[in-house]
Simulated assay, not measured.
Amino acid sequence: MDLAGQDEGSPPLADRLISAAAAFEGSEEIAEARDLARAFLTRVQAVHGLPVSGRVMGVVQLVVSELVTNARKYAPGPCLLTLEVSEGAVEVTVWDSDPGLPVPRATDPGRVGQHGLEIVTAVCRSFEMHREPVGKRITAAVELADDPGGAAVGRQAL
């Protein structure tokens, strides 16, 4: 191992895939999906040394909760959740068996409920929906950097 904790000849940490995945079949498992996200981000920070603030931890759990809830509510069968660190962000991907893409509703402060997609798109760096041969895949990316200037929490600007 070198001083950076890498095996000689192994790719740099930035090039390694940091991910976690699980399948969920019941609405009672939505809390388990949030727990997976929390454990994943804790590992990202503790094992890989990437800073994860309390804000990022909360936003990622919110995004996971909203996307898995929608998959469980509107699609039959299981849904698959994948979390991956890529290009300075946590990518949250949820696959489900329903090919219908969700349609964001117009902002309506008087509407009770059904604001999840609005919230997710507002807090994420990017949001993509794709039909798959079976079902659909939704990916939302949450920045790991905490301030608008791009400085990550736990690191000092020079």
Rank of each mutant, 00 (worst) to 15 (best):
M129L: 13
L67P: 01
L101F: 13
A20W: 05
R55K: 03
C79M: 00
D7F: 14
E132D: 12
E132N: 10
R55Q: 12
A151R: 08
G154F: 08
E91Y: 06
M1D: 10
P99D: 00
A39W: 11
A106V: 12
Q6V: 05
A37F: 08
V60K: 01
T121R: 15
E87S: 11
R105K: 10
I119K: 09
K136R: 15
A21P: 01
A157D: 10
E87M: 00
D2F: 12
L117E: 05
E128P: 02
A122K: 15
A20Q: 07
I18D: 06
G154R: 09
S10P: 01
L17T: 14
P148T: 08
V63T: 01
R125D: 14
D2W: 08
T82A: 09
E84D: 07
A140H: 04
S27M: 11
P78I: 00
N70T: 06
G77F: 07
Q45Y: 05
S126M: 07
P104R: 12
F127P: 03
G100N: 08
R34C: 12
V60R: 03
L17R: 12
E8L: 15
H48G: 04
A75L: 02
T139M: 10
A145E: 12
V153Y: 07
E29R: 14
P12L: 12
V63P: 02
L17Y: 03
T69S: 13
R16A: 09
A37H: 04
S10Y: 09
E84K: 10
P11C: 04
P133R: 05
L3H: 10
A21G: 01
E87H: 09
P133N: 01
A89T: 01
A4D: 15
P99F: 00
A75Y: 00
V44H: 10
S19K: 06
S27Y: 06
L144T: 05
Y74H: 15
R43W: 11
F24T: 01
G100L: 05
L50C: 03
R105V: 07
T121V: 07
F40Q: 01
Q6N: 15
D2G: 13
R105G: 07
V120M: 05
D15G: 10
R131Y: 04
V103F: 06
R43D: 15
L80H: 07
A122M: 13
V153C: 03
E91G: 05
G154P: 03
S126Q: 11
E32K: 14
L41G: 05
R43V: 14
T69E: 12
P76C: 09
G77H: 03
P99M: 01
L101Q: 03
S86H: 11
T139Y: 06
G116Y: 02
D147R: 11
A89S: 14
A37Y: 07
T93G: 10
M129T: 00
E32T: 11
E84Q: 12
R111I: 10
A21R: 12
V103N: 02
V94Y: 02
L101H: 07
F24C: 08
G113R: 08
L81M: 11
A151P: 03
P109G: 04
D2Q: 10
V44S: 08
A89V: 03
T82W: 01
D15V: 06
E66R: 08
E84V: 03
M1C: 07
P102T: 02
A151F: 09
P76S: 12
A39G: 13
L41I: 06
F127I: 02
L17S: 14
V52M: 00
M1H: 06
L81Q: 05
A106C: 01
H48N: 11
F127V: 05
T82G: 06
V123Y: 02
